[in-house]
């Protein structure tokens, strides 16, 4: 359903305007509809996932006018006028975002269901804190539950994405690994 259909003249709901991943959108929908459902159902941006519906798991994390939010806890009316970024808006010009690249190389994603939200939380962290230490990384993604990785490789991925210089030292923070063929 594209914007024009949602905003059909017989639709009684107020129009809500925002910019998603650089594109201006107008939707006419119940104002209490969760931003999460608007993204997924009305805008077909299904990269944002629902894990719990109560702001606990972070799978639905998106960026709303510069802040990280759980889109399951935002009634769409409160997004009126906002600038929204979802996982679909992270890669630029067909190139993976450095975080996506790091997650791919370092095993930051396993089943992938927490990954979109995790990437948004990590991107938000790096915007506010370009060279986070391990404690800052832990805090930055503490609202994003991952049941597959034990987080270790996510910490490494985020650290590796910060900058080429810090990547080398960051990976040694958490895990030593050795493969001794015997």
């Amino acid at each position: 359903m594209r914007t024009s259909e949602s905003a059909a003249p017989n639709n009684p709901w107020p129009a809500v305007r925002f910019v998603v991943n650089g594109e201006a959108r107008i939707v006419s929908i119940p104002p209490m509809k969760r931003l999460l459902d608007v993204l997924r159902e009305d805008l077909q941006l299904t990269g944002t996932k629902e894990g719990c519906g109560e702001g606990e798991c972070g799978s639905c994390s998106v960026r709303l006018s510069g802040e990280l939010v759980n889109s399951c806890l935002v009634p769409v009316l409160q997004a009126d006028g906002a600038v929204i970024q979802t996982v679909e808006g992270l890669a630029l010009n067909g190139k993976l975002h450095p975080l996506q690249e790091a997650f791919l190389q370092r095993g930051g994603a396993q089943c992938g269901i927490c990954t979109p939200g995790m990437l948004m939380a990590a991107a938000h962290l790096l915007d506010h804190c370009p060279n986070p230490d391990l404690a800052q990384i832990r805090e930055g993604i503490a609202g994003n539950l991952c049941r597959c990785t034990g987080f270790i490789r996510i910490f490494e991925s985020v650290a590796a994405a910060t900058s080429a210089q810090s990547a080398g030292s960051a990976t040694t923070l958490t895990t030593e690994q050795s493969h001794h063929a015997r």
Partner: peptide, 11 residues
């Protein structure tokens, strides 16, 4: 790289 990794990372 994980086989389906890019699809997961792009949402």
């Amino acid at each position: 790289p994980r086989k389906e990794g890019v699809d997961k990372l792009l949402g």
